[in-house]
């Protein structure tokens, strides 16, 4: 009984973030099966893929058009397979015995989707600014799989009962230095992308907002109209402010815990503002979206870098329930 009771452990912080990643893959897989994906309209899968080729360098554009052509030849079957893979990745990450394999497979899959499905997030043709959806949500999925790589010592797995000290969840298998470098590289790239290409044009924000307003519920379309009015002619100001904010967030992980929390909190705020104001919740409410866009996954990434408060390890991971709880549980369950 003691042994059974000691096995009852709620997931630790790192494992909880892995489960959010699993839920994100699962959600994407389910959204991939929406009716618009199977219809011949502008939101059909082959057309969505082919549209991402525009503006990319010739070799990249050719490869994307080739993939769109292959998928277009067997559109329904390809869409079901793509959805099934994503559902399996989500379920695989959620089931502890297969978590490592699923997370490992999710990295090349995410990079493949980033290339063929998102046109490399537009980073090669100046369309990869965060306000325009860059550098692409699925790239963050790959980053999450790397920094949240399963680590029994910290995830409450059976191999190591005593988790070693760690300042934040992402410092698990990689270690603190490489994990911080990944964070800094991602947010520095976002800062640079904010200032490149068409994102700093005076009407870039209002045009982008107008582009995503179609098909949204009334309250969200109304919000978009107000945003477009407010941002009209202020593209450069918004781009500079966003670039500075991203640079601060990038440097934040190298600061002591208290200021680091402020910087990471700023990263969460920026992610959510872009997600709501610019991405319209990933346009899932309009139908036809295949993911929830970058906002939620950037928040998950930020939480993976949130410094632990007092205990470096995760005390909840090893907290077992009293033995009698298991017995009572069997009576009621």
């Amino acid at each position: 009984m003691e042994q059974i009771a000691s096995r009852w452990m709620p997931p630790g912080w790192r494992r909880s973030l892995q489960l959010v990643l699993a839920a994100a893959w699962l959600t994407d897989g389910v959204l991939q099966l929406q009716p618009s994906m199977f219809s011949p309209g502008a939101r059909s899968l082959p057309r969505v893929l082919a549209a991402t080729a525009a503006g990319n360098p010739q070799p990249v554009a050719v490869s994307i058009r080739w993939a769109a052509g292959v998928i277009g030849a067997h559109s329904a079957a390809a869409d079901i397979i793509l959805a099934l893979v994503q559902v399996l990745l989500g379920l695989g990450i959620a089931w502890r015995p297969s978590a490592r394999v699923a997370m490992a497979l999710s990295v090349p899959w995410a990079l493949g989707v980033w290339w063929f499905g998102e046109g490399l997030g537009g980073v090669l043709h100046g369309g990869g600014a965060p306000v325009l959806g860059g550098p692409g949500a699925v790239l963050v999925y790959a980053v999450l799989a790397v920094v949240l790589w399963p680590d029994d010592a910290r995830d409450g797995g059976p191999r190591s009962p005593a988790p070693p000290a760690a300042r934040f969840a992402a410092a698990g298998a990689l270690g603190g230095g490489p994990a911080k470098a990944i964070w800094a590289a991602l947010w520095s790239a976002m800062a640079a992308l904010s200032l490149l290409g068409g994102a700093r044009a005076p009407s870039s924000i209002s045009a982008a907002v107008a582009a995503v307003a179609a098909g949204e519920p009334g309250w969200l379309a109304s919000l978009d109209r107000h945003e477009a009015t407010l941002a009209s002619g202020r593209g450069l100001v918004v781009a500079v402010v966003l670039a500075v904010a991203c640079a601060v967030v990038a440097a934040g992980v190298y600061l002591p815990p208290r200021p680091a929390r402020c910087c990471i909190g700023l990263g969460i705020l920026v992610s959510l503002v872009i997600w709501v104001a610019m991405e319209n919740f990933g346009m899932v409410l309009a139908g036809g979206a295949t993911d929830t866009s970058s906002g939620p996954v950037l928040v998950v990434l930020a939480l993976a870098y949130w410094p632990y408060r007092a205990e470096p390890a995760e005390p909840a991971v090893l907290r077992a329930q009293p033995a009698e709880t298991s017995a009572e549980l069997m009576e009621v369950g």
Binding site: I4, R15, A23, P97
Partner: peptide
Amino acid sequence: LVSAVWQLNAADQLVALAHAPVG
């Protein structure tokens, strides 16, 4: 979907509890 993920994560622990003696 969150419930499916959560339940799957806890599957092994649920198995252990399911076979626990009652008392």
